[in-house]
Amino acid sequence: MEGKPEDDGGDLTRRGFLGGTGAALVVAGVPTLGGVGVEEEGVSTQLLEAVPQTAIRVTVNGTEHRVEVEDRWTLNEFLRDHIGLTGSKIGCNRGECGACTVLLDGEPVYSCSTLAVWADGREIVTVEGLERGGDVSPLQQAFMDHNAAQCGFCTPGQLMTATALLDRIPQPTTGEVREAMVGNLCRCSNYNAIVEAVLAAAATSGSGGAQ
């Protein structure tokens, strides 16, 4: 998907297009960052305050990032919009659907409902971090084998929650899987296949395969 040549307009990808648009927006946003006074005749002078930023150090999928983040960025905004990890999704952006689930120090959390600045010094794993040496994890393989993704939008979040479950309970019961997954909604209502896939992954490997 990445790296299409710019002159190849006929093959423009959605992600490439959105990436380009994002870059343009960032450029447009730059003047507000420095605290700029706007003076025009007949218009009252208004000082735009700098957006508060903080330097943080986080490890994402094993790679350390030392970055300046705006205090208001959610962890999800940081991951998706600023370091290009678009695996975790925004479904509701209000801590209800679970599509944004990532692992924070090994525990599943809603990345839309915590701030990047609060992740300082901590370790994050996203769905991009599940593969090992180019191979998908046993859990990911089980999701494919059992058609656990329909539209696929909730899948990254489902995978992260299930990964955390299998790390904690390598051989869960059906009830334990259902209980652990209540915070991940699937609008295709593919719940039975998702539970089947998690149980199958547990049976084949005894582990979800994170870290």
Binding site: G95, G98, T101, V109, T114, V182
Partner: peptide, 9 residues
């Protein structure tokens, strides 16, 4: 309360 994700946070 809520979900595992919220209980962890």
């Amino acid at each position: 309360v809520a979900t595992p994700q919220i209980r962890h946070t």
